[in-house]
């Protein structure tokens, strides 16, 4: 396997595998977040479990951070390399004649998602790390000790319409990214069934339903609190 990940195809595999992992993470993230719409208690319980279970915190979380960073950094590296592969641009290029807008602009939808992730980390992840690992409060309880804090923190974040707007916009870009990314990850992995209608239809459904679900959660809490 020496040199595999330095080769163009090895990097395709690595991008695809990190993408598949991130898509699985996204599904899990959505499954927990949607609980907040139906049952604040269930959301609190699930959030506390995810935030304190050692496998999630010390194994999966570092893997996730590595996966996110790898996907972004390698995405940039490949973009730079690809731009160098055509020094003189075409005077006239009709990209729309042979490929989708989403497939040609993954770097821009990716950048929009990266911008969102910075906001999301500042909103949720950094305060969570500060509470748990700097203050040492692993209880997950509100300051007055009356129940878990997770649902209260979530709903509080979605009061500001500007933040909600930014979230909605980011999920539109996420949907565009997934529209190409889902089937692309399978194609890169060498899955020959990629072209079968079912897998493509599933990919499109995933790319629409998951981001739309996140948008629904943000709007639901904005208009209900």
């Amino acid at each position: 396997m020496s040199g595999f990940f330095k080769s163009s195809i090895g990097r395709k595999y690595a991008m695809a595998l990190s993408a598949l992992f991130l898509m699985f993470f996204l599904l899990q993230h959505f499954a927990i977040n949607i609980l907040s719409v139906f049952s604040p208690n269930a959301f609190n319980e699930a959030s506390h479990f995810m935030g304190t279970f050692w496998v999630i915190q010390y194994v999966m979380q570092p893997v996730l951070i590595f996966g996110v960073m790898y996907h972004f950094i390698m995405g940039f590296i490949l973009e730079i390399k690809n731009r160098k592969a055509r020094v003189v641009k075409y005077a006239k290029n009709n990209g729309a004649a042979n490929s989708s807008w989403m497939s040609r602009n993954m770097i821009y939808s990716g950048l929009a998602i990266l911008g969102f992730l910075v906001l999301h980390f500042i909103d949720f992840w950094l305060p969570e790390i500060e509470t748990k690992y700097i203050q040492g409060d692993m209880s997950g309880l509100l300051a007055d000790g009356e129940g878990f804090r997770y649902y209260e923190e979530l709903t509080h974040k979605f009061v500001n319409p500007l933040r909600v707007g930014a979230y909605v916009l980011a999920f539109v870009f996420l949907s565009l990214h997934l529209m190409h990314g889902f089937s692309s990850a399978f194609q890169s992995s060498g899955v020959s069934s990629m072209r079968k209608q079912k897998l493509q239809a599933f990919g499109k459904a995933y790319a629409i339903i998951i981001p739309l679900g996140f948008i629904f959660i943000a709007l639901f809490h904005h208009f209900n609190h």
Partner: peptide, 18 residues
């Protein structure tokens, strides 16, 4: 063949299908 392709300076496939 892949090693030679990489050496020639072609870009990476991003599955646009063009």
């Amino acid at each position: 063949m892949v090693a030679q392709m990489d050496l020639e300076g072609f870009g990476n496939c991003t599955n646009t299908g063009a």
